[in-house]
């Protein structure tokens, strides 16, 4: 199963939802990896949506493309990375009309970044549907050098930019679409606990 029950946390931490059918004139899905399963599940309860759906999908090595294609969406784009899909996402939002419903599913990093684009295009974040599926790794910003490290699965971790040992916090920035990583051994350099899974 690709779902995970996140433990309750501070207010800053995003709370992801689960897809609900919603009336609208067009549907934009952005998903990565197991995020495809959320789309497949929604299509079971609301198959009619697919005729006006545009799916932007980043498989990350998973194999859901055939299943998504079988839904017969109006458009299906399968790309190698979020960065590669970004021009398409931006153009779609730029040309979109009111009535468009946005659905984001998959990893937190993907949903956060796509949500930032949709919010910049004028959709209030509360009106964007989300569903977490698959990896619980996070997109982290080092608060010291501001560098972003993608897909962080362990805590603490080493900043991929400046090399500091960072503690994974639940403080989240919608503007950066990232959680904060803070130096864990500033007072006692080298005194770093053994890294383990974020939720272990």
């Amino acid at each position: 199963m690709s779902t995970f029950a996140f433990p309750p946390s501070i207010k800053s931490r995003p709370v992801w939802g689960s897809f609900e059918p919603q009336s609208g004139s067009a549907y934009l899905f952005v998903a990565d990896a197991e995020g495809a399963e959320a789309i497949l599940d929604l299509a079971k309860v609301a198959p009619a949506l697919m005729a006006s759906a545009h799916i932007i999908y980043i498989p990350k090595g998973t194999d859901f493309e055939t299943a998504l294609r079988a839904l017969n969406p109006a458009q299906l784009y399968v790309g190698p990375s979020y960065a590669a899909s970004l021009p398409r996402l931006r153009k779609t939002l730029e040309d979109a009309k009111m009535g468009l419903q946005v659905y984001l599913s998959g990893s937190e990093g993907l949903m956060g970044q796509a949500m930032r684009e949709a919010a910049e295009a004028g959709i209030p974040h509360a009106a964007i549907q989300t569903e977490h599926r698959g990896s619980v790794a996070r997109r982290m910003q080092c608060v010291h050098c501001k560098g972003i490290t993608e897909d962080v699965a362990v805590d603490p971790f080493v900043c991929s930019h400046c090399g500091l040992n960072l503690f994974v916090r639940d403080h989240y920035s919608r503007r950066l679409a990232a959680y904060q990583g803070v130096c864990i051994d500033a007072e006692a350099p080298g005194c770093v606990p053994e890294p383990k899974g974020i939720y272990e």
């Binding site: 009336s23 609208g24 004139s25 009111m98």
Partner: peptide, 10 residues
Amino acid sequence: AQAEGWPREM
């Protein structure tokens, strides 16, 4: 507006 899919916040 609701029937046309406009979010409540808008």
